[in-house]
Design a binder for these strands. Sequence first.
DNA 1: GATTGACATGTCAGCTCTTACATGTCACCT
DNA 2: AGGTGACATGTAAGAGCTGACATGTCAATC
Lengths: 181, 181
Amino acid sequence: MRGMSLRIALLGLLTAYGSASGYDLTKKFERSVAHVWQAGHSQIYPELAKMTADGLVTVEAEGARGRKIYSITPEGRAELRAWLVGHDPTGPARSEVALQAFLLPLLDPGEALDVLERLKAYMEQKQAELEALWAAKHASPVPEGTSGVKFGNLALDLGIRQTRTTLEWANDAMAQLERQA
Amino acid sequence: MRGMSLRIALLGLLTAYGSASGYDLTKKFERSVAHVWQAGHSQIYPELAKMTADGLVTVEAEGARGRKIYSITPEGRAELRAWLVGHDPTGPARSEVALQAFLLPLLDPGEALDVLERLKAYMEQKQAELEALWAAKHASPVPEGTSGVKFGNLALDLGIRQTRTTLEWANDAMAQLERQA
DNA sequence: GATTGACATGTCAGCTCTTACATGTCACCT
DNA sequence: AGGTGACATGTAAGAGCTGACATGTCAATC
């Protein structure tokens, strides 16, 4: 039961937004889950086929242009619930930003400052995107959601906080490097 | 030039700590880089072989028990520097914790609280580990490092801040769920 | 009537990564 | 002399993922 996060993400989206096609789900990945997990259609289509074979989803209907509408089965719901409740969050730590941070002292301070400057710009842009998403969500009048919390908001909040933290770190690291130079 | 982070990490370690064997580098991964990037020996040995073929590292000497001592070449140094200075930090976003956060509203509040409680415990433990590392580094009298900043400290600082942020988020999310229940 | 572009689904080569298997050396303890 | 455990290097199957290739439908514009 390793690395089945793509499966879980798909089951989650099918639960939250109701039935959808592979195409729809690909769009959801681009738009709503992108800050949390990424997957392209070339990964999603085969996975849906496997999940159908495993009985976690079914093809509810076939629409125009070969469109296949998937929906989650009780087995799928059980699988999702079991993962959410039982999954140990020991995900492999792999962050390119952190790796860059780790290796930064190998550069001389001037170059390191440049790298941090670029990182800062990237993070600021990301922050703006996330905050725009936040604003958009809070403007609309409760669209979808299972409990009182709007779907995806907790994750969005986490993302915004983490971006802010990275930004603060970059600023402090720059100040530290400037003191040395 | 995609996903060459393992290469970069190895080049970085060879620069920072001088020449080392595959075994040594595996240990460094377990101990010093683990919070930033992960790799086992079965990934490291073949990669070192490829890097040798590409002229980025050389086998400096062969010691006892078949031990091979690698060191970085000028080409390797150039490659590392180019990556650090020129790399765009657009790493694929893939966080199991964030995915769990995203899907959390699919559970009822009681179960969601349990999940957050477990996450909090995990993060607290991680935080303790990182802070112990920090304390250990600040106790010893400047061991290795290229500039004035001790090697790996910037990354450690980032890790500690991010863990703290996740912890704060978990607490606030729990408070929010409790208000609903 | 033709082109454009969004819709829609798939496959495949090749890389990364994980897990497990496999082999052998050397120092130390009993 | 035998056993344990750290040292040390490798291979291989299979999953995960990326990027490119491939195919076709439908609606709207020119």
